[in-house]
Simulated assay, not measured.
Amino acid sequence: MALHLIKLCVGVDTIGELEAWILEKRRRLSKDGSAQEHVHVTRMAPKRADELLDGGSLYWVIRGQLACRQRLTAIRTFTDGEGIGRCRLVLHPEVTPVSPRPCRPFQGWRYLGHADAPADLGDSAASIRALPETMRRELVELGLL
């Protein structure tokens, strides 16, 4: 069964902003002739990489709520120019909104079990997905969603 990660999406206020940032980053890489791989660099490498790569995702916390996810495609450790070990989390560029859930701030990333992961806002939740993100956020805060 897949294992997931949770991470704060700092500097982003909406899922749309995250998607726009990913698109812009891919465009820049394309102009440079670099691989258009979407990566997020962390200080620590997950010890349970095999479980994460067995269908796991990185769930983003945006403004205090689990809001969306990106599928993990690879995990690569490396040493930066200052000799510090780091980790590249390679992510599929598609962002999938999930059923919003409050989440307190934390540092770094945390593991998230498959059973505890929020459901995607897919076709069965089309009416919820159609709501503006700010309205979904307010409904969750009021305990109505």
Rank of each mutant, 00 (worst) to 15 (best):
H4I: 01
H4V: 01
L5P: 03
L5F: 03
K7H: 14
L8H: 01
G11S: 09
L18T: 01
L18H: 12
E19L: 09
W21C: 11
W21V: 06
I22A: 10
I22V: 14
K25H: 13
R28G: 14
L29N: 02
S34D: 12
S34Y: 12
Q36G: 06
E37Y: 01
H38A: 04
H38M: 06
T42K: 02
R43N: 09
M44I: 07
M44W: 11
K47F: 12
K47Y: 11
R48P: 00
A49D: 01
D50Y: 06
E51V: 06
E51W: 10
D54S: 10
S57C: 15
W60Q: 02
R63K: 05
R63L: 08
Q65A: 09
Q65Y: 12
A67E: 10
R69A: 09
T73D: 07
A74E: 07
R76M: 08
F78E: 00
T79A: 07
R86A: 04
R86F: 02
R88S: 12
H92E: 12
T96L: 10
P100C: 08
C103V: 01
R104L: 14
G108F: 07
W109A: 03
G113T: 03
G113V: 05
G113A: 13
H114F: 08
A117K: 00
P118D: 13
G122M: 12
D123S: 08
S124P: 05
A126I: 08
I128L: 15
A130V: 02
R136V: 00
L139C: 04
E141S: 15
G143A: 11
